[in-house]
Design a protein around this nucleic acid. Structure first.
Lengths: 192, 192
DNA sequence: TACTAAACGGAGACAGTCCCCGCTTATCTC
DNA sequence: GAGATAAGCGGGGACTGTCTCCGTTTAGTA
């Protein structure tokens, strides 16, 4: 392991400022917030922004890692409080809510489960995949979830459900409805 | 009804050229193809493009209406050839394939089923909704599709499935897989 | 042929991305 | 503390794209 010398104090300061401003900007303007504008608001030149975060993805990820980690943590919390099947559904719901309501997170979560996404994004997707995997295994042990499905597949489907819900209602009011259509299937008799 | 005088010959010519070039460009570069570039390739100024098609949506729609009509027509064809349940699934599959493979159509179909989309787009979505409605009714009459679901909901879910499939594989190789997860549901025993 | 309204087209204002490179400054050494 | 040095800064500028405005051209008409 190569010794990494610590960041220079001014660099660290700027890095942190950028992260803070970026989170605000993405929340306010969505994933396409102007990067030059973020740099300006943080009081740095655009060169500085692009040095710290070479791509929009990189900045997006850095700005939201903690939120995503929290989401992953939430899975284990739910697993303790609810029976496996319900915990899974509940977490899927929270995942979809986050996807829709926290602007900018959709792109991030999306690319985390997309084939061929960058290694950097993969790192951030790993904990979400792990969380999903744990919930699914528990549900499968209980016999309430089919065996022939992978965590990444369900993550993608959740993203799809979020997309569908968003088309119906920007606030995510249809998430539970569409989620239940997915869990129950389209055949008759599935209606509760 | 006000008499609409016919388009001037040069205007009509340009209109048609633009449409042709636009379809090619969207196919090649996706929904974000440069509009100025389309104008250039069609041999007209950008002013002319924006006069005929005030927004990207308008151009996208005009370029793909025939394809969408064809898709709607395909529904009735399938309805004649297959039992209702299969016809529905088959059409959903073709819908998803189109959504993914014909670049530019995703945005269009998406906005057609989105709450609050423009009147212009609504017109183009109407025939798709009609086609979906007919297939669903037949399936419901046969008792192979739950009763408590609307055409627009299934269109949105199909869009979601297409989104999910696209994340797995840009070519749409997973469409049938994800579609079957939707139709069968996530409970055990649904695996065929 | 001459008129006129319809239509054209491209210059230019604006916004965004991203890189380059001369300048500044934090940190280390003595 | 003073000086050396490389890490880091920052904004100018090239580029790409959107979209409008308005002087010019031309199809259709009489």
């Amino acid at each position: 392991m190569a010794q990494v010398r610590p960041m220079r104090a001014d660099a660290r300061r700027n890095y942190e400022r950028l992260l803070k401003v970026a989170a605000e900007s993405f929340a306010e303007h969505g994933e396409n917030a102007s990067l030059d504008d973020i740099a300006k608001r943080a009081g740095v030149g655009s060169g500085t922004l692009y040095r710290h975060f070479p791509t929009r993805q990189a900045l997006l990820e850095a700005a939201y890692v903690d939120r995503i980690e929290a989401l992953a943590g939430r899975a284990d919390e739910l697993a303790e409080q609810l029976p496996p099947g319900e915990a899974l559904v509940e977490w899927l719901n929270e995942l979809c809510v986050g996807t829709i309501q926290v602007r900018g997170m959709k792109a991030l979560l999306g690319s985390a489960v997309t084939d061929g996404s960058s290694a950097a994004v993969t790192a951030c997707g790993t904990s979400v995949k792990g969380a999903m995997g744990r919930l699914m295994e528990a549900a499968q042990r209980e016999g309430v979830l089919r065996e022939d499905i992978e965590p990444i597949e369900l993550l993608r489907l959740a993203h799809g459900v979020a997309t569908a819900s968003e088309m119906a209602d920007k606030q995510g009011g249809q998430i539970r409805r569409y989620l239940s259509l997915l869990t129950d299937g389209l055949r008759p008799g599935a209606e509760d």
